[in-house]
């Protein structure tokens, strides 16, 4: 072995090897923070859903963004279902989570960056709600997450866990569809999903699961989201598949590597 002694020349300031990395990092952080500031500013909006002006604004938005598939009268076409009677809750959920407008026709509409501000979303919801009565946007008292967590957990396990996984981690359905994971979903959207049954999810109306029980379920989900895992890594809370994959590949891999090392001749 030949040992070469390194020449030590200290580079400082803008000639430092890490200067470019630091510059790029600073640029990204500033841009990101500025963007977050801008996009948050319009999140809270007070909109009167009953006002005729709101409905008119909503109709304009609908005509230019939604009518291609849902029809100019919102009565549905071959490309999309009728929206008469789906209510404000359905519109607020589909548009508010970015599912609508659809990116493409597929097995399932998926969550993507929102295309409308909260104000525009509410205007659209007001228009759709004006067509025919349907489930409305829930009141804040059901969304605070301070309900009975234990009762919410029991209701969740009976009604929701078979698709959404007992820890709300989501799961697969048939023909490319899936039940999405529920962590990070806004309380209002969880409530609206239960009330309206978006896409292939069944409807859980207030006669089945009352508003207070929905509040309990939301409380349970928020509790799950904010509680730490006592047992260490959750591996996505996906259950035996993820755990099996981990132990068979990482665990068994480590055992095989150790065995190879133990039996190999020392050089």
């Amino acid at each position: 072995m030949i040992r070469s002694t390194k020449k030590k020349t200290k580079k400082t300031g803008r000639r430092h090897p890490m200067a470019t990395v630091a510059l790029v990092a600073i640029g990204l952080i500033v841009t990101g923070a500025a963007y977050a500031g801008f996009s948050n500013s319009s999140a809270i909006a007070e909109v009167d859903l009953q006002a005729q002006s709101t409905i008119d604004e909503g109709q304009k938005l609908f005509a230019s963004n939604c009518a291609t598939c849902h029809g100019i009268q919102a009565d549905g076409t071959d490309e999309g279902p009728s929206l008469i009677g789906v209510g404000a809750a359905s519109t607020h959920f589909q548009v508010g989570t970015g599912r609508m407008p659809l990116a493409f026709q597929g097995p399932q509409g998926m969550v993507k960056p929102k295309q409308f501000t909260e104000e525009q979303t509410l205007q659209l919801a007001a228009y759709v709600a004006s067509l025919a009565p349907g489930p409305g946007i829930p009141e804040a008292q059901y969304l605070d997450g301070d309900g009975d967590v234990a009762n919410g957990g029991e209701l969740f396990r009976v009604n929701c866990a078979m698709c959404h996984n007992v820890a709300g981690a989501g799961g697969a359905l048939t023909e490319g569809k899936w039940a999405p994971k529920l962590s990070g979903v806004a309380s209002v959207h969880i409530y609206e999903a239960m009330a309206t049954g978006p896409q292939n999810m069944p409807v859980f109306n207030n006669a089945n699961i009352s508003s207070d029980e929905k509040r309990d379920i939301i409380s349970y989900l928020k509790y799950l989201e904010n509680s730490t895992s006592v047992g260490g890594f959750k591996l996505g809370s996906l259950g035996p598949v993820a755990e099996g994959l981990f132990i068979w590949i990482i665990g068994l891999g480590a055992v095989v590597a150790l065995t190879v090392w133990v039996t190999a001749k020392s050089n």
Binding site: P202, V203, N205, A207, N208
Partner: peptide
């Protein structure tokens, strides 16, 4: 009746697209 509460279900409670356990 509903699982787990055991309250009886009216036919009118079961709206289109609903699922009751």
């Amino acid at each position: 009746t509903r699982d787990p509460s055991g309250t009886p279900i009216k036919a009118s409670d079961v709206t289109l697209g609903s699922v009751f356990h």
